[in-house]
């Protein structure tokens, strides 16, 4: 796969003197879904705004489709659709008017059938003549997406698209995103729902305090950092772990009422059978057992905390 966006050495210091981004290097592959994660204020929106031309970088370069975003801004911006984080809309306009307007702004002549398709895809067709101020928040969010898609972009930025959107709509939205990806659109999204990144993204980047702390293929990341834990609730509490069980590196929890076994779920052998045999031999009996998998959420929290 070839890269569609190349970010090199991007830093941003706002006029207030605050450094929001520190020397970011990142390549986005053509046709992928890239999820940008990070706590509030990490610099996600700033990075997106720089690529889209809303914020001027303090240093560094970005190319989109091989064109520089500053010297060749017409080429790069025409390729990009942006759904901003803030819900801003021309409240007195109708859905149809505002979406058609966006298409024009991005240099495309009117194409009612395309606008119709976009509105239908986003379940906005029956609202096309409604004024934006009469729409609910989730509908306004969809209008913003429709605006971003009005000019048939090759790259779509979704800055927290699912904030304030109900579950059903969220699923529909992700269907649309997958559909767009299948049609060749590259998608960069930010989200605070890590489950979404886990479900949707091909690759994941974590940004913290203006620094890109990690970029990984999602599956590899889950594989590398994804550990499973087996918790055994014991019949009789124990104080020490018998020597015969030492090789399993068990942890005693809940005042000796629980034993915790950590293993790699993606590994060839988990060692569970072996453990259970050894437990029986040592005469340790248990009432119940439970397994849990470290989610991306935990990985993420871990990364961010480690960084502090």
């Amino acid at each position: 796969m070839s890269q569609i966006i190349s970010i090199q050495g991007i830093s941003k210091t706002y006029k207030s003197g605050f450094q929001a981004l520190k020397n970011i290097d990142l390549d986005i592959e053509k046709g992928e879904i890239f999820a940008l994660l990070g706590p509030n204020g990490a610099g996600k929106t700033t990075l997106i705004s720089i690529i889209c031309g809303i914020v001027t970088p303090s240093s560094g370069t970005v190319t989109v489709g091989g064109h520089d975003i500053i010297t060749d801004y017409r080429a790069t911006r025409a390729m990009i659709g942006l759904v901003p984080q803030e819900l801003t809309a021309e409240m007195f306009e109708t859905v149809w008017a505002t979406v058609s307007h966006s298409r024009g702004l991005f240099g495309k002549w009117p194409n009612p059938s395309h606008i119709e398709k976009v509105l239908k895809d986003l379940a906005l067709w029956d609202k096309k003549d409604s004024k934006l101020m009469t729409l609910s928040g989730g509908m306004k969010r969809r209008v913003l997406i429709a605006k971003a898609l009005s000019h048939e972009p090759q790259v779509l930025f979704l800055d927290e698209p699912t904030a304030g959107v109900d579950v059903e709509l969220r699923n529909e939205m992700w269907e649309l995103v997958k559909h767009l990806r299948d049609s060749g659109v590259t998608i960069i999204l930010t989200t605070h729902y890590i489950q979404e990144a886990e479900d949707m993204a091909d690759r994941i980047g974590v940004i913290n305090k203006g620094e890109l702390v990690l970029v990984e293929d999602k599956c590899e990341l889950m594989h590398k950092l994804g550990r499973k834990q087996l918790t055994l609730e014991l019949h009789d509490p124990i104080e020490t772990i018998p020597v015969s069980l030492e090789q399993h590196q068990l942890i005693i929890a809940k005042d000796g009422n629980e034993l915790i076994y950590t293993y790699d779920s993606q590994g060839e052998r988990t060692g569970i059978t072996h453990l259970l045999t050894d437990l029986a031999e040592a005469g340790i009996r248990f009432k119940d057992l439970d397994t849990s998998q470290s989610s991306l959420e935990e990985i993420f929290v871990d990364l961010v905390r480690r960084d502090q």
Partner: peptide, 13 residues
Amino acid sequence: TGTIYEQLSAPLS
């Protein structure tokens, strides 16, 4: 209102 983001991100001189 903030809708200026669109003009700023559009290929407009």
